[in-house]
């Protein structure tokens, strides 16, 4: 019997000797012993996000000359034909719905996996 043959045999036996160990409550026990979730991290993130949004809005407001572009665009929209307004509203609605559905589906599949 050659050396290589014997080594292959030994490696195979070593690999085959590994059997899957059923969980049998092991994971649950580990999770039970985990320290309590660190408090205050989610609220902190929300505060940061909200703060940045408010700050960015304020900067945009001052840079755009007191938000004048908003009233200008509302005036422009008001002068559009009704059919155009309807098309824009429908398009925006469909876009928001599609994005919302996509986000919901991806979140659900993440939770299930």
């Amino acid at each position: 019997m050659d050396e290589q043959h014997q080594e292959d045999w030994l490696d195979r036996q070593l690999r085959e000797a590994v059997s899957y160990i059923d969980d049998e409550g092991f994971t649950a026990q580990v999770l039970k012993r985990l320290p309590a979730r660190r408090p205050g991290r989610r609220p902190l993130r929300a505060v940061i996000l909200l703060g940045v949004t408010v700050l960015a809005s304020a900067i945009a407001y001052f840079i755009s000359g007191g938000g004048r572009f908003v009233s200008l665009n509302i005036e422009r929209l008001a002068m559009l034909p009704v059919l155009w307004l309807f098309a824009i509203a429908l398009g925006s609605g469909l876009l928001v719905t599609t994005l919302g559905l996509f986000a919901a589906i991806s979140k659900t599949s993440d939770l299930q996996s």
């Binding site: 160990i21 059923d22 969980d23 994971t27 580990v30 985990l34 660190r38 991290r41």
Partner: peptide, 24 residues
């Protein structure tokens, strides 16, 4: 990011067999 203990539970489930096997 979220201190997500469910995600950690999944990691435990995936690796418990090999870690316990090695330690045994």
């Amino acid at each position: 990011v979220d201190d997500d203990q469910h995600a950690f539970g999944e990691l435990v489930r995936r690796h418990q067999s090999s870690v316990r096997g090695l330690l045994r």
